[in-house]
Design a binder for these strands. Sequence first.
DNA 1: CGGAATGAAAT
DNA 2: ATTTCATTCCG
Length: 515
Amino acid sequence: MVSSTMMTQGPSPDDEYGLDAIAQHNAIHSTEQFPPYEEDAKGLGIYNDDLFHDGQAYIHNPPTPRSGTASEGVRTRSGRSARRTDSPFSTSKSRVSKSPAPRSKKDKKPSKLDKSKTPKLTAPLSILTKDMEVPMKDMDGWVHRSAETRRKEVEKRNGYVTRPMNSFMLYRSCYAERTKQWCLQNNHQVVSSVSGESWPMEPEEVRNQFNEWAKLERANHAAAHPEYKFSPSKASSKRKKGEFSDDEDDASEVDGDPDGEYRGGSRSVRQKRMANHSAPPVAYLPSNVGFDSHPYYAQQQYEQQQYGYTSEPGRPLPSNVGYEQNGLVFNPQTGTYVHTTMQTHPQYNYMPTEDPRNSGNLRVSTPSSMTGVHQTLGGYGLPGTNIRTDDLFATTSRTGTPAMQAQYNSYGQPVYPQYQSYTPQPAYQTLPSQQQQQQMYEHAQYLQQASQPQAAIDPALAGVFDEAAGREQSYFDEAIGDLAGGDQYAGMEFFEEPASASQHMGHVWSRAELQ
DNA sequence: CGGAATGAAAT
DNA sequence: ATTTCATTCCG
């Protein structure tokens, strides 16, 4: 069924049909491809369907979009040149996005950043930067830093305990390097801006992934610093009500401050951290080391499936770890919370799991590896049961290297052999098969469409979207639906053949299993 | 007690 | 600059 057969040729390494074209298209039509995310996205709907309407309209719009309209408030138009990965630069301010309701935060600051230098996104960073060679930060490894490591960091900062990064900070940091490159500038503010713009565009799975990471980060942070408590400086009160001038007893902490030791190394250090950037543990996945640092994800899915692990506490765990109150798995040895399948479904494949066999240049394996939108399997409430090819590749890659069973990951965290040994080897260990290639191709197609909604959307389908639901996935679903011809079959279509693989990856978890 | 405001997290 | 979060503040 599916037009899957249209795969005349595998994905061109050159992104020929990829985003470049899109970029051009966008440049020509200069528009705001993505829906401005409505209101705070706290929960669900993030996009509104303007996208489609607009998109539609734009399609037929002349290259020069109403140049005069909306000079500033909401969304702006702009043109820009296309570049390798569609690099951007809008000539106008980029976004605004904040829906009508200024949240409450003091009305959105005027923002001093010169938007002219701020690129305008046509798609989330996970897609835009998908085939960059610059690795993403190994967030999984990062959030799993051991308590020990964390304490060391604190020492380095002279005792100051920083707050754990939230999901967005993690996200930003994950893509920072790529973003810089994509923007062609190192301006932090621009990076932030772009990240901020991209964040709401990311598919739910992606954001979920970062939320999970944030959760872990928090848990591990707490484990490492049990007594830490975030205490914003007292300054807050002054601002609000007048109060004191600002002397604020610079002693900052004021009396006692029992927390002194934990928080702001009160010791004269204040909150400003020392410029100790000597050897940041930041580890970016070297691309050849790759996946070793995240032995938990896909792998555990296998475990669960094959060994019948369920998420229910009480079941034996594969290694020296135990369940925590929150249901998190805790490893006493490292004092670290470990991510398990119980909390999330099939994980978004976020690691630069390049195929080790390609260590060095990963032309082929890269494309799908990080963008794996990977719509959740089985659709937990998610409309499309879409499965991405990335999973397959992720599997292939990570399992293809028996030799690479490092003892420690890039963060110096022990990687438990148990995990590794538990990993069933996929039936196939060869390079991407034809079918896989086809999948890659489809994926590319998907990406392409995903990033050019206005062109991809068939007017006839517009009605399909549930505007009310305001699902942010709209454009992805769209693209996929269009490709596979239906949500229901999407998954099957994509995974029909690599039986062995689909067995693992294609498994649709039932809710029961997940609970 | 809840919403508003604020600060802090990495670059 | 950005988003999320914990905290505090105030009515």
